[in-house]
């Protein structure tokens, strides 16, 4: 770990000013479960590390009378997963959080930091590897022709096929959640779906955040579909492992007919991937086995796998189908 100075501001304005002032010297640390790995492995080399503890960000978990959720960015993953309003109103969010990492990590990691965690691509995480456009722009992408079992089949480019590793972000995208941001230009609100950029020819720029801009809260709109929902994660180990493929599914049904469907997938792209083709195939249709099967068949539309992850399109269809069957009560 390289030397840095540690700053512990007590308000958002001061924390923002450190990141906005610069010089590309500032990194932020909240729960620390990703940043400490990046520092230890010499992937991030900030001159200044700014702590977002000490009251900079709030950790409140609040449910509005209509059921909408507001999560302070510093709320811990474990606290959000255990909150009654989340468990009852948004089971897919609770399940996504509980399928993430380990209990110790969930006690430390914040929900804001979860959205901003860096990819788990092994080539990004190993500074001994030369070719990683995300870590060292212009050096190429060793993953494209390397070990790419875990990597993207949607949204990648010739410069990067990293996946976004968050489980929590997947239901957020399915439910049209937004993030509140505070930065040098003031405050703004953007959909979680628009927080992360596709790699294109600049994979090192991962989000639309400007220097110094912080996530202060996550807001999830009230959703009837979310009450009947499921997060299904498929992985190489049963626990404490990132997704090969995951699906967040929520269905609002009325007398056997699907009023509204929300479907997004994780482990397949540089950001959580909303499955609008699947949703369209379900909306207004009967909740029966043939409909679910036909809808799930759309889950892999547009995929472009590499040799090491050629199994993913079929796994995506099967994962969505199983999640739909669980939520639709048709095992």
């Amino acid at each position: 770990m390289r030397p840095f100075t540690l700053e512990r501001p007590h308000d958002i304005a001061t924390a923002v000013a450190f990141g906005a002032a610069d010089d590309d010297q500032t990194d932020y640390i909240a729960g620390g479960t990703d940043m400490m790995q990046l520092l230890t492995d010499d992937i991030r080399r900030p001159g200044r590390l700014v702590s977002l503890g000490d009251g900079v960000l709030d950790d409140r978990i609040e449910a509005a009378p209509d059921g909408a959720l507001r999560l302070g960015a510093a709320a811990r993953m474990s606290d959000v997963a255990d909150h009654p309003a989340v468990r009852e109103g948004f089971p897919l969010i609770a399940e996504a959080l509980l399928s993430s990492a380990s209990a110790q990590v969930r006690n430390m990691a914040t929900v804001g930091g979860n959205l901003l965690q860096r990819t788990r691509c092994a080539y990004f995480r190993d500074p001994g590897v030369h070719g990683c456009n995300k870590r060292a722009p212009g050096t190429g992408c060793a993953a494209r022709d390397g070990v790419n079992r875990m990597l993207a089949v949607l949204g990648g480019s010739e410069h990067c096929i990293a996946t976004h590793a968050s489980d929590f972000a997947v239901p957020l995208v399915a439910l049209d959640a937004v993030v509140r941001l505070s930065g040098p230009g003031g405050e703004r609100t953007i959909p979680v779906e628009e927080l992360h950029r596709l790699p294109g020819d600049s994979p090192h720029v991962e989000t639309v955040l400007v220097p110094g801009e912080l996530i202060t809260a996550i807001e999830v709109p009230a959703s009837r579909a979310a009450r009947t929902s499921h997060y299904l994660k498929v992985r190489d180990r049963e626990s404490f492992e990132f997704a090969l493929v995951s699906a967040a599914v929520a269905l609002d049904t009325d007398g056997g007919r699907i009023r509204e469907a929300r479907v997004a997938m994780g482990g397949v792209g540089p950001k959580p991937w909303r499955m609008r083709g699947v949703e369209r195939a379900l909306a207004g249709a009967a909740c029966d086995p043939a409909v679910l099967r036909a809808a799930a068949a759309r889950a892999a539309d547009g995929t472009a796998p590499r040799p090491g992850n050629a199994f993913k399109p079929e796994l995506m269809r099967r994962t969505v189908l199983r999640a739909l069957r669980v939520v639709g009560g048709q095992p």
């Binding site: 479960t33 400490m36 702590s51 209990a103 110790q104 990590v105 006690n107 430390m108």
Partner: peptide
Amino acid sequence: RRILSCMAL
């Protein structure tokens, strides 16, 4: 609450 002391400054 259980945490990982190696991931904590």
